[in-house]
Design a protein around this nucleic acid. Structure first.
Lengths: 115, 115, 115, 115
DNA sequence: GTGGTCTAGACCACT
DNA sequence: GTGGTCTAGACCACA
């Protein structure tokens, strides 16, 4: 239920982000077309477009009209930096508070991963 | 923004859960009436009722018709247990994956947990 | 939850009806005063009065003002007759439909009637 | 009168449950949209949503956001099991006691159905 | 289009 | 007084 409740476009975005961070998509590489990726993921093309759009807004992918979409130079580095910052600022404080409230031990959670 | 975007009824639920976990509401204690709590929180009575409802479904509060709602025996213990379980099962796996993906270590996180 | 959800005044009514049917309260016998019965049952006197009222409406108990309330002559017989009739007409059809729908047989039910 | 006094959302719930049990709605089938069903039944969309909600909580229907609601795999089997259990545990004991108290014969009632 | 949430205001049964 | 239900009408995010 919790993974189902995340918007599809965010899950698509994460999948692309992971590929960029992992180096599977490198600067200059073409991304799959909206239609192809939509077919591949069983998603609506509009939903895929929404995921791509968020990367364009951040300048991490560039569009060459009539040709396709390509990973921008330095995409991995900038993506990593911005995700690290937003995680620490926006998500981690609440997560840390929950961990404290539920009396978990952070080191223990991280070492054993529990998942 | 992230706390603002959470549904009101869930934030009310969390406030009540915190009070039960803290021992401010103890078994047998009456909860504020739907109307009183709604006024207090500037929310609609239906919204408050929705928050209360979720506790009823889990048997953490009992309703005495025409009288009021009361904290059930063992509510704090069961609440803590269910929250710990749901955190480990549903939230932590994704969080741990993110931590790995963004290459954080324990020191990074400890430093920022007091945000 | 299901027994809790029945109105208190109906549960009180059933308790009195059972006593009349069983012969514990016989025609001419005094019923406990509203106040005494309320104390005994941990209920609100108004709630007890509501239960008593329903019997008065059916003429099964008679009030002698300033003295008390008494079981009417023929109360058990009339009560039995009216309850049997209302059970067959109003409750059993729905119950039978449920039994059919859930595909229970006589043995299933006999096994569980001593719960 | 007794069916009239049941909350609308429970009657809607029963109608959907019957359709699932009958196989009119099969796993993977879409349920009518909240708005469409509300129009169809002359009810408020919120009331329909409340009926649907109870099935979601039990995992009998799954929600695809922005798309619709669908019957979950195994819904009929789980629904039948849970209804049988709740009938035997919560309703039947009281019904059996009534049958005994009113001096009916269970086998007779079931054979002749009386309704 | 879909479901999710919220409000304002009403009526009901129960204690 | 209490909680439970229902309506009408609104706004939102998502696909």
């Amino acid at each position: 239920m919790s993974s189902d409740s995340r918007p599809v476009y965010l899950r698509l975005r994460d999948a692309i982000a992971a590929a960029i961070l992992d180096g599977r998509y490198r600067p200059g590489d073409p991304l799959p077309s909206v239609r192809a990726f939509a077919l591949d993921q069983g998603a609506n093309p509009l939903t895929v477009a929404k995921a791509y759009q968020s990367f364009q807004d951040e300048g991490l992918i560039v569009v060459r009209r009539g040709v396709g979409m390509f990973v921008a130079p330095g995409a991995a580095e900038r993506l990593l930096a911005s995700e690290r910052r937003s995680f620490l600022d926006e998500q981690w404080p609440r997560i840390a508070a929950t961990i404290r409230r539920l009396d978990f031990d952070l080191a223990d959670l991280i070492q054993h991963q529990h998942g």
